[in-house]
Amino acid sequence: MRTEGQTLYAADVTGVSSLGKFYVEHERGLIGTGAVLTFLLAWEAVTRSRLVDPLFLSSPTLIVRAGYELFAEGTIWRDLRVSGTEFVVGYLMAAGVAIPLGLALGWYRRLYFCLGPFIDVLNAVPRVALLPVIIIWFGIGVWSKIVVVFLGAVIPMLINTFSGVKTTEERFLKVARSFGASELKIFWTIVFPGTVPFIFTGLKYAAGRALLGVVVGELYAATAGIGFLITVSGATFQTDKVFVGILIVTTTGVLVVELLDRLERRFEGWRPKVGSAT
């Protein structure tokens, strides 16, 4: 989302004092940090002054303390392990199904015609609406969450892999066919490499969906996990613990997306530039 628009705002840094220069050079970081600090201080002040009951809103220091206690007592490790297992197993299963299937759907037109309607419908339904049925089928243990994660993650991976195959440069295929390359060779040396960046984009979108699946699945019905921690703490008005859970989820989301971002940039050079094709 953060595309380059920097050229629109070329700041003039000549002829200002060194303090001003420092500010201008680090403006983005300074303003961002300032805004976050102001927000945290205001939050702390509101609860400290008893303007709002801490039971209701908690406060940054209370959250830090609750987080420290949860990790020190070690009760949280079990929740982390359960949520982590659900996320990893569901996500890997989705990748294991979606990437080969997506490649096949892009390569075999008739297969796409057959399965297309199902993919379109699944894509339009928030998969979490299936939770009550999934609970009936798989119970409230780990497996129901794995299925929700799988369903959430499989669609974006599938659609991106498919469109990766579909956007293969037509000219490359023509050249390869002119030189009598076998279909298998065309697939592995032209189609698949061109699809890799798309697969990574799909993996990145899917990470968010998978995280949503874990959290919602555990909020809805579970016996352990971070979402379970959040919902139990919420039901018992331990707002600070709720925030600890949310922070853990957010951190995980940021880390996973960052990791996949790096992998994606690594393969970015392969992406066919659709706009500038001549």
Binding site: V215, V216, L219, G227, S233, G234, I246, V249, T250
Partner: peptide, 12 residues
């Protein structure tokens, strides 16, 4: 980065 639905217990 946060699935916003994680905020549900708080919102409730």
């Amino acid at each position: 980065a946060t699935p916003r639905v994680a905020l549900l217990p708080l919102i409730i």
